[in-house]
Design a protein around this nucleic acid. Structure first.
Length: 124
DNA sequence: CGTGTGACTGACC
DNA sequence: AGGTCAGCCACAC
């Protein structure tokens, strides 16, 4: 089958918090595929069953740009989904310094194993 | 089974 | 900021 790798990629991608993004390379690395490829991440998320509700839209390239060709339906969909989460997307691009998800930082702030859940009131 | 390709990336210029 | 180049790797032909 397509692989154990896909599974790992899906698992990692699913961890990206709402309103944040990760790069293909970042997910690849987290999935334990440092050199095997960011490219594989693109394939994996594209092949993910819709029932899985994978947050594929939270994955952009290392430059903070949407990797899907502009003008396509999926590109527009990704922009739409990101904006719905409060991410400011301009010209198919966003600010990585601002929205990049940093799992290690998450761990430092929220504790090992704990995930930052924006919805679960920590309420200011 | 060889080639081309891409929802990538980092290094250079 | 933008263009080119060489690695990468699974997949379609």
């Amino acid at each position: 089958m397509s692989g154990e790798s896909y599974k790992r990629i899906w698992e990692q991608a699913a961890l990206i918090p709402e309103g944040m993004v990760a790069s293909y390379g970042q997910i690849a690395k987290l999935a334990g595929l440092p050199r095997r490829g960011a490219r594989m991440v693109g394939r994996a998320v594209g092949a993910a069953p819709s029932e899985m509700q994978l947050p594929w839209h939270r994955i952009v390239n290392a430059q903070g740009k949407i990797a899907i060709p502009e003008g396509t339906r999926r590109h527009a969909q990704q922009v739409k989904l990101l904006r719905a989460e409060g991410v400011d997307v301009k010209k198919g691009q966003l600010d990585m310094d601002r929205y990049r998800w940093d799992p290690t930082l998450d761990e430092l702030v929220w504790g090992p194993g704990r995930l930052h859940d924006p919805g679960a009131d920590s309420s200011a």
